[in-house]
């Protein structure tokens, strides 16, 4: 396969880097710890949730773990999916760039015939 042009490689690298950022964020979000207000909870802790109308609700560790475990795959799927799309786009960009360069090369060689003869 022909080597793609430098611009295509740079563009694909930027796309791939953005994809990798999504993967890294997904990896950091995949930790199994249960959090309350962004802080890690221990099984003996209780989390106090204060609603906008001032209503207070207490959640224990098990309740929050069940709730957050259910939400995690959705978040991971979304981040991983978006990251995957960026990486796929980078790959597609590279393949298309290689094909275009191959076609260019064929045209350059075809022109050599009449350039030499003239």
């Amino acid at each position: 396969m022909a080597k793609p042009k430098a611009g295509v490689v740079v563009g694909a690298s930027v796309l791939a880097m953005i994809g990798v950022v999504f993967f890294v964020v997904a990896a950091f979000s995949s930790g199994g710890e249960v959090t309350c207000d962004g802080k890690t909870m221990r099984p003996s802790d209780v989390c106090l949730e204060v609603a906008k109308d001032g209503r207070k609700t207490y959640h224990n560790f098990a309740e929050l773990k069940a709730e957050q475990d259910a939400r995690r795959p959705v978040l991971l799927g979304a981040l991983g999916g978006i990251g995957g799309l960026f990486v796929l786009a980078a790959g597609g960009f590279l393949v298309a760039g290689s094909r275009e360069n191959k076609k260019d090369q064929a045209q350059i060689e075809a022109a050599a015939a009449w350039m030499r003869a003239g």
Partner: peptide, 19 residues
């Protein structure tokens, strides 16, 4: 600059390819 070369090649009975 290219036209005379392409025409010379064509006038010898050769097809000239552009893409």
């Amino acid at each position: 600059a290219q036209l005379p070369k392409a025409m010379a090649y064509f006038d010898k009975g050769n097809p000239v390819t552009f893409g």
